[in-house]
Amino acid sequence: MNMKLIFAGFVILALFLEIIWSQAKKKEVFSSRESLANLGIFIGNTLLKPLSLAWKYFALGWVESFQFLSIPTNFFTIVLTFLVTEFGFYWYHRLSHEVPLLWTLHHTHHSGMKMNLSTAVRLNWIGTFLSPLIYVPFVLLGFSADLIIVSLLVNLFFQYFLHTEAVRKLGFLEGLFFNTPSAHRVHHGSNEKYIDKNYGGMLIIFDRLFGTYEPETEKVTYGVTTGFYSNNPLKLNFQPIIDYIRGNWKREKQRIKEGKSN
């Protein structure tokens, strides 16, 4: 059976179950207009998928010809590749919050004011072409480009299920090893104590190691610090870049700092 169809089936089934849960529990976790915006962004990324995937294989595959080492493929190196990919994801994700230009791309994902599984596909169209470049150093060191790409795809598939309020805190598992919906809700919060926290993909260990882990201790206010941004997919993808070029762009922590000083 086609693995893509299996993955797609899990994604659609989970979203369907979340909708049923939200209706049964009377949880206002969906906004029809925001969900349509998420769908529009998803359609754009789906249309770009053949090109973005080809770019990933081309960029990382080309770098393989310049490798310093040749790392054999076995169980140990597959696990190591997964950890290296997670490490790369953590730092690219962190830089996407801390570097204003990268924040213009990642802002798309965080501008949603609801937390549900459709939010997971709210990903900037340009960012999907830039993110693979963070893995170039690992390929040069000898890691397989194919294994890195597969590890990243598995990582992103796992992250889809983190975007939900249906799963509450997981007790002693929180902050232990794997990322959780609770930890990722914190990441999407515009609460001052939640900003720039919990960057991990599948794992939370690098947040623990580098001091960016924050548990969910207060109700999360989703979205960005400026509040509602737009439900227009084109504006969500490109307006932050335009604002950056015009010199009218700040990262979240800077906005809060300036707000306190005023």
Rank of each mutant, 00 (worst) to 15 (best):
Phe75Glu: 07
Phe75Asn: 12
Phe76Ser: 14
Thr77Glu: 10
Val79Lys: 00
Phe82Gly: 06
Leu83Lys: 02
Thr85Glu: 02
Glu86Ile: 01
Phe89Gly: 09
Phe89Ser: 04
Phe89Gln: 11
Phe89Thr: 02
Phe89Pro: 03
Tyr90Pro: 05
Trp91Asp: 12
Tyr92Asp: 08
Tyr92His: 14
Tyr92Trp: 15
His93Leu: 12
His93Asn: 08
Ser96Pro: 06
His97Leu: 08
Glu98Phe: 07
Pro100Ser: 14
Leu101Lys: 03
Leu101Asn: 03
Leu101Ser: 11
Leu102Phe: 14
Leu102Asn: 09
Leu102Pro: 03
Trp103Val: 09
Thr104Cys: 12
Thr104Ala: 05
His107Ser: 01
Thr108Phe: 01
Thr108Tyr: 09
His109Arg: 01
His109Ser: 10
His109Cys: 02
His109Leu: 04
His110Leu: 11
His110Asn: 11
Ser111Thr: 13
Gly112Ile: 01
Gly112Trp: 01
Asn116Arg: 08
Leu117Ala: 08
Leu117Gln: 13
Ser118Lys: 08
Thr119Ile: 09
Ala120Trp: 04
Ala120Thr: 04
Val121Leu: 15
Val121Gln: 14
Leu123Arg: 11
Asn124Ile: 07
Ile126Gly: 09
Thr128His: 05
Thr128Tyr: 02
Phe129Thr: 01
Leu130Gln: 03
Leu130Cys: 12
Ser131Lys: 15
Pro132Leu: 10
Tyr135Asn: 00
Val136Arg: 03
Val136Glu: 00
Pro137Trp: 02
Leu141Cys: 11
Leu141Arg: 02
Ser144His: 08
Ala145Lys: 04
Asp146Trp: 05
Ile149Leu: 13
Leu152Gly: 07
Val154Gly: 10
Val154Glu: 06
Asn155Arg: 14
Gln159Phe: 06
Gln159Thr: 10
Gln159Trp: 04
Leu162Ser: 06
Thr164Met: 00
